[in-house]
Amino acid sequence: MAVTLPPGLPREALRKDAARNGLTRSRAAGRILRTATAAALAVWFVLPLVPLGLWVFADRWSYPAPLPQHWGLENVDSALSRGAATGFAGSLALGLAVSALATPLGVLAARSLAFHPSRWSALFSALLFAPLALPAFVTVFGLNVLLVRLQVPSSAGVVLVLTAYALPYTTYVMRLAFGAHDLGFEEEACTLGATRGQVFLRVQLPLIAPALARAAFLAFLVGWSDYLVTVLIGGGSLVTVPLLVASAAAGTGNDGIVAVLSLIALAPPLALLLFAGMTGRRRPGARP
């Protein structure tokens, strides 16, 4: 039976074959060039994180000392006393809420686009991807007044706006997955007498699970990394790590605290990525 693999699934096997048969293997000069490029790229990606790593443990680092003069954990204490824990919880809650809303809605929208083309489809796609073309601050200027007037609680307003900004990503990822998804399986299961619930659990879910994880992660990141929407619409009711970073960066002598908060912002998504990597799934795509 011919099975179309969703484009998101790994083709490790194919790649290994290609490497083994030597057709695309490079020569020595090429290998050196490649290693040098790889090293340069690794430095490029990791360099801005180096000062963060140093500042975290720098209790005292006066200019122009190239390295901290006193090492310690004072910055961690200061960051905690500035509400790092609250901010972390706020960020986590926001990311999860956006993910919990945007993922299922994205699945539904993608299913509609993939399997039920109608004369509305073009308009639907245009609308669903419109947030990518509209900078967040523009909508926020307009919505701020509207949301307060409609008495939408400000945290709910933040989740609503960020969900709209996460939907293009979740819809896109799921649309790709459904594009390679064979409805025949579902129909066959139905013919064999499976209930709707069984079809969903045993057929649909396993087929889309990797894409689902990817979509959920992207939606989480939209909530996790936002600053402007949280500040303008949330109006302080929701304190997240990016807000703490901004307010610490607006003060003097807070470099160490900024570094600790930054690492806090890096930890959970990194853990998720590592977890995804360990369980052998392909790396999720991402947001700029």
Binding site: Y227, V241, L272
Partner: peptide, 14 residues
């Protein structure tokens, strides 16, 4: 993939 999940404000501070 290290830099992907980092909020832009953190990237700017770094």
């Amino acid at each position: 993939s290290l830099s992907i999940p980092l909020p832009h404000i953190v990237g700017a501070a770094a």
